[in-house]
Amino acid sequence: MPQMNMVQAINDALATAMRSDERVVVMGEDVGKVGGVFRVTAGLFDEFGDERVIDTPLSENGIVGTAVGMALYGLVPVVEIQFSDFIWPAYDQIVNELAKFRYRSGGEYPAKIVIRTPVGGGIRGGHYHSQHPEAAFIHVAGLKVVCPSNPHDAKGLLLASIADPDPVLFFEPKRVYRAAKGEVPQGAYTVPLESAAIVRPGRHVTVLAYGAMLYEALDAAAKASAKGVEAEVIDLRTLWPVDIGTILESVKRTGRLVVVHEAPKTCGFGAELMSLVTERAFYHLEAPPVRVTGFDTPFPYTLEMEYMPLSHRILPTLLDTARA
């Protein structure tokens, strides 16, 4: 089985989908000849031509608006927004159009596109190349939100997202684009949406993480283990609809919960996860659920490592929660 990094795995998923389904088109800024600023679409232009791998004008609103139109026609556009920080001009099209088309037309006009976009900090990108805006999309009825952490899942989840009948926001953790490596099967396979993965079993505390922060959570869990605390680390993979069954099963076993995410704390996805758990498993809890997150500030440039919920911030919270 070939070894790939996440960039290669996502590229492989796109090529696989485009080979098997002529309706799949890729569009965005710089996705053509140059293969995307992160090279995720490298080689697709040469293989599929400029009608299916489309370098668009620099207009996120135009990219998503026209992609919605293509979807209404019957194509399956896979859109790249160069950085998730640039997605906001398209927010109206995503929230008011893409997410609502099926509902507002009584099922007559499902509009399905996949929006791929790199997220997260730790790459010296400042606040316009580092944000992690999942909460603003999870909040919108009609959207699905995915955030893989490794090459195998990235390919399988992207193929599942392309095959899924609903619009999907596919958030790619750019900090581990090339750092996360692993075996990736050749050809088509899917990792089902709405399924989380227990990546490190443990019995003392449940840790929920996703994307690049999964590795920080795993690092903290390894260090906690040396101190006698066994953390169970769950990679959510699909953020919405979240795999509530796996989460509850784990929390009911451990009685303790730590949620990790890069995005700001207030109204972040962690708030929803904690509400879901406390509504359903309150009497199983033996300690207050805790969040380790980014702060309610814009994402800083020089102090980015202080902002992010890295292992050294997760570890003490994890130990405190396990011992509370």
């Binding site: 609103n61 608006g65 026209t66 139109g69 293509m70 979807a71 026609y73 194509l75 159009e97």
Partner: peptide, 12 residues
């Protein structure tokens, strides 16, 4: 909002 969509449809 229908303007970009109408373009995308014909583009498809």
């Amino acid at each position: 909002t229908q303007i970009t969509q109408g373009v995308g449809f014909a583009w498809g």
